[in-house]
């Protein structure tokens, strides 16, 4: 079984301001990290691998590859993935990929997955913490012509098929899917394993496959900012319209007013 996990490097800080002149976003002290729900996707993949390997009756072989599109330093998140236990890693990087929206990103990621080789199952996060569209997973599935299941909470293999539980409205839905398929994993759906000093050291020494557009050969009008159908035209601080009534006074007065409002509302109902 060959598993691919799509991961994204995101800014670790949400401290964002708007440049008053250019209207561009200024990301302050922008460190980077792995997108939170991708940690859950990795954990789900690793657990599935454990399940497959423990099944002695099956010919239990399983390899997990983490893949990301990003600048060269996005290899950091691949190292983290390998420290968590992923077998191989692939970085898709090229200046032509820069500025991609979800349509262009999915084009590159899908091409990268194809180029990397065979796959049976792809994991992605349900959404990133910065763009947060949740569109990349389903789009990658579409480009690879495979089904996808979103916001999966539980996943296991049974007779070469996937049994999944997906969150839906206020309920949970049990589904069966044939392979190959793509699943997106929601934030917090499991407890991602921690890396250790040793696993981090070992991950540093592992090799990472790098594909640029030299290898992927995607037409330049399909990738990057040029190949993106959407553009961010502006960013601005929202105008603040406070519709609420402010309670004035010192702490004691405010507390009194709060209790009075609660009592009144309760009185109206009982």
């Amino acid at each position: 079984m060959k598993i691919i996990v799509c991961i994204k490097q995101v800014p670790s800080s949400s401290e964002v301001t708007v440049d008053p002149v250019t209207n561009n976003l200024i990301r302050e002290k922008a460190g980077t990290m792995m997108n939170p729900s991708d940690l859950n996707a990795l954990e789900a993949a690793l657990q599935l691998k454990e399940q497959i390997l423990s099944d002695k009756s099956a010919k239990g072989d399983c390899k997990i590859t983490a893949i990301t599109m990003g600048p060269p330093d996005a290899q950091e998140v691949l190292r983290t993935a390998m420290a968590m236990g992923v077998d191989e890693a692939c970085l898709l990087t090229d200046r032509y990929f820069g500025g991609s929206d979800t349509i262009a990103t999915s084009q590159v990621v899908a091409a990268g997955i194809r180029k990397y080789g065979e796959f049976d199952l792809i994991f992605a996060g349900a959404e990133s913490s910065d763009g947060a569209t949740g569109q990349v997973g389903p789009m990658v599935a579409e480009r690879l012509s495979i089904p996808h299941i979103s916001s999966v909470e539980e996943i296991k293999m049974e007779d070469q098929e996937l049994i999944l539980i997906r969150k839906f409205r206020q309920t949970r839905i049990k589904l069966k899917a044939s392979l190959p398929a793509l699943v997106t994993v929601g934030y917090g759906s499991n407890e991602p394993r921690l890396t250790t000093l040793r696993s981090n050291m070992a991950a540093k020494k592992k090799e990472i496959t790098v594909f640029t557009n030299e290898e992927l050969q995607l037409p330049l009008d399909r990738i990057g900012a040029a190949g993106s159908p959407t553009v961010v035209t502006e960013s601005f601080r929202p105008q603040i319209i406070n519709t609420c009534e402010f309670l004035s006074g010192d702490a004691r007065e405010i507390a009194g007013k709060i209790l009075a409002l609660i009592e009144k509302e309760r009185g109206d109902h009982t």
């Binding site: 979800t102 569209t133 949740g134 569109q135 990349v136 389903p138 789009m139 579409e142 916001s151 959407t230």
Partner: peptide, 17 residues
């Protein structure tokens, strides 16, 4: 949010979330 990204891809349309 899950179905229409696929449709956007098929139509090569831009999609804002």
């Amino acid at each position: 949010r899950s179905l229409f990204p696929r449709v956007a891809c098929r139509l090569r349309a831009g999609m804002t979330a």
